[in-house]
Design a protein around this nucleic acid. Structure first.
Length: 183
DNA sequence: ATCGTCATATGAA
DNA sequence: TTCATATGACGAT
């Protein structure tokens, strides 16, 4: 066979209201599949699940987690996340990102090194861009090696704002190095 | 300091 | 296989 068909999976779309606008959470029967910024639209999913197919606790945990991140506070408990659409490598990167503490920033190269693939910084960046659950999987805490913002699927404005919320200072100039907020 | 170029891993077409 | 990436290191200017 040449290619696999587009892996459209059945989901339920839930709107999550926040002070920053309405996010959209997509749940499969296995957990949270995708989190979309206000105004973003999903693809690769099929809205065929019913409300009864998704436990209310998942929605509650997701809502609380999103709102805590937007408030710059630690997330208490995350909902189950369905990352089955990711490749093994992507799952490892996403897992590593979840270990970055609030208030700190890592880099694509550091994560690559943590995965024992010191040359795979660029691949890590690509995996970050494929992160289906921003905020809860804190890809915004990953900067370039020189402290530059790098990129962000939801837009650099979001990345900058999220980091500021967590007390991570970034310089407007590209020549700057990463600065941490901690004393 | 800024720019161009190359090396390198992964994934989609 | 070819092309595109949310990189990083190096050398020339």
């Amino acid at each position: 066979m040449k290619t696999n068909a587009p892996p459209k999976i059945p989901v339920l779309a839930i709107s999550i209201g926040t002070v920053e606008g309405d996010f959209t959470a997509l749940f499969s029967s296995q957990g949270l599949v995708n989190l979309l910024f206000p105004g973003e639209k999903s693809r690769r999913t099929q809205p065929t699940l019913k409300r009864d197919d998704v436990p209310a606790t998942w929605i509650k945990k997701t809502t609380e987690a999103v709102q805590k991140v937007l408030a710059g506070r630690k997330t208490a408990e995350l909902p189950p996340m369905d990352l089955s659409l990711g490749t093994p490598f992507q799952k490892r990167v996403w897992s590593a990102m979840q270990q970055i503490p609030l208030g700190e920033a890592s880099s694509y190269g550091k994560i690559a090194t943590a995965l024992e693939m010191p040359k795979a910084a660029r691949a890590v960046g690509a995996a970050c861009g494929a992160n289906p659950i921003p905020l809860l999987i804190p890809c915004h805490r990953v900067l370039a090696a020189n402290g530059a913002l790098g990129g962000y699927s939801g837009g650099l404005d979001w990345k900058k704002r999220l980091l500021a919320l967590e007390g991570v200072q970034t310089r407007p100039n590209k020549t700057a190095k990463t600065v941490f907020s901690h004393p």
